[in-house]
């Protein structure tokens, strides 16, 4: 289950460990297989607050496979699946 972070530092939201705060560095839906038309997932994520600069932290993990995840995004809480969290590039905060 553990995914080693890529060497170029391209860390994704689904790779964060629980409780590790981070900021959103970008949204890139090309990494995700979806049924949606191109650009739609990105727009939905922005509408739900997953936009560059947002603070995120994983609060809860579902079952089984620690999926889906509940994340705190600034002042609200969002549930999403790891498969789609892959679209969110993050920078961990110290």
């Amino acid at each position: 289950m553990t995914v080693s972070s890529p060497p170029d530092g391209d860390l994704r939201l689904h790779q964060l460990s629980k409780g590790q705060p981070a900021t959103v560095a970008g949204v890139d839906e090309s990494a995700v297989v979806t049924t949606l038309p191109a650009g739609e997932l990105e727009r939905r994520m922005i509408e739900m607050g997953l936009v560059e600069g947002s603070r995120v932290v994983i609060l809860h993990e579902g079952f089984p496979g620690r999926d889906p995840i509940a994340i705190r995004v600034n002042e609200h809480t969002l549930a999403l699946r790891r498969a789609e969290a892959r679209a969110v590039r993050v920078t961990p905060l110290a």
């Binding site: 979806t34 809480t77 549930a79 699946r81």
Partner: peptide, 12 residues
């Protein structure tokens, strides 16, 4: 086909 993404707010 793949499932629709889940993007759901968990209200307080």
């Amino acid at each position: 086909g793949a499932r629709e993404p889940l993007l759901m707010e968990l209200p307080a």
